[in-house]
């Protein structure tokens, strides 16, 4: 059974059809990078997977469970789907360690001390062991994003979604975040990454989706999509971003 099964996904915002029928399976252990022009629907596609956006029609299943924002078990299903946002969205009123422990303590009824032990381990993994008691607003963008990754990992998700995780960062901080993501991919995490970092996609992705105009216009291995794109729109897009 695939980790994620997406069938006939349509999404309208008012009159505007953003996703026009997407079918896609994501297998456990895959690292899928989603690329495409802005406004193509790639972020909406990602946000539908954990039901932050409700599909207008179509189904999304994670581990065979239908994701439905109105369903009683949606909170439990979301526990298995970590998400990292472009704007980090750390909770500014909570210290770094509390940001990480709040969900395990509230949702998994984890003992506070145990949650903190796990949280400190995760912080060490993202290279921020010394920031446990810092407040989010005292961190740099790159540090915030690494904390956000640790926060998502604290729920031990089977799937991680990244929504342009480096787009809001100063250039010198992109590397530290991508390094953490690369390490996560090497450890076998199933990941869906919406990104403009073509180097990262080429290096780390097991599969690349090119979304354009609300449809998957092309997909394949990084070698196929970057080396020998078949769709003229993929060629145009890649020429634009790679030349820039």
């Amino acid at each position: 059974m695939p980790k994620v099964e997406i069938r006939g996904l349509h999404k309208y915002f008012g009159e505007n059809e953003v996703l026009k029928g997407i079918d896609c399976d994501i297998e456990t252990g895959e690292v899928v990078c989603v690329i495409g022009p802005s406004g193509s629907g790639k972020s909406t596609f990602l946000r539908c997977i954990n039901c932050l956006e409700e599909p207008t029609s179509g189904t999304i299943m994670v581990d065979g469970n239908i994701m439905d924002a109105e369903a009683k078990n949606i909170d439990t299903l979301r526990e298995d789907v970590g998400m990292v946002f472009q704007q980090f969205n750390l909770f500014p009123h909570l210290s770094v360690i509390k940001n990480i422990t709040i969900a395990p303590v509230l949702r998994k009824k984890m003992d506070k001390a145990e949650a903190e032990r796990v949280g400190l381990e995760l912080l060490a993994r993202v290279g921020l062991a010394d920031k446990a008691n810092a407040m989010p607003n005292s961190l740099s963008g790159g540090q915030k994003q690494r904390v956000a990754i640790a926060r998502a990992l604290a729920m031990r998700p089977g799937l991680m979604l990244f929504d342009e995780p480096t787009s809001a960062l100063d250039p010198e901080m992109v590397g530290e975040v991508l390094d953490v993501m690369r390490q996560l991919a090497e450890e076998g995490m199933t990941m869906v990454v919406v990104t403009h970092e073509m180097g990262f996609a080429r290096q780390v992705a097991s599969r690349v989706l090119f979304i354009d105009g609300g449809l998957i216009a092309e997909e394949g291995t990084p070698e196929q999509v970057f080396g020998n794109p078949q769709n003229p729109r993929t060629q145009t897009f890649l020429n634009q971003v790679l030349e820039a």
């Binding site: 789907v81 946002f85 709040i102």
Partner: peptide, 23 residues
Amino acid sequence: VDPGQREAARSLGLSAHQTTWRI
């Protein structure tokens, strides 16, 4: 309050109620 705060909390599995009161 930034709508991203609610999204982040819900994405972690926090319920609507927990999100409102804790975040």
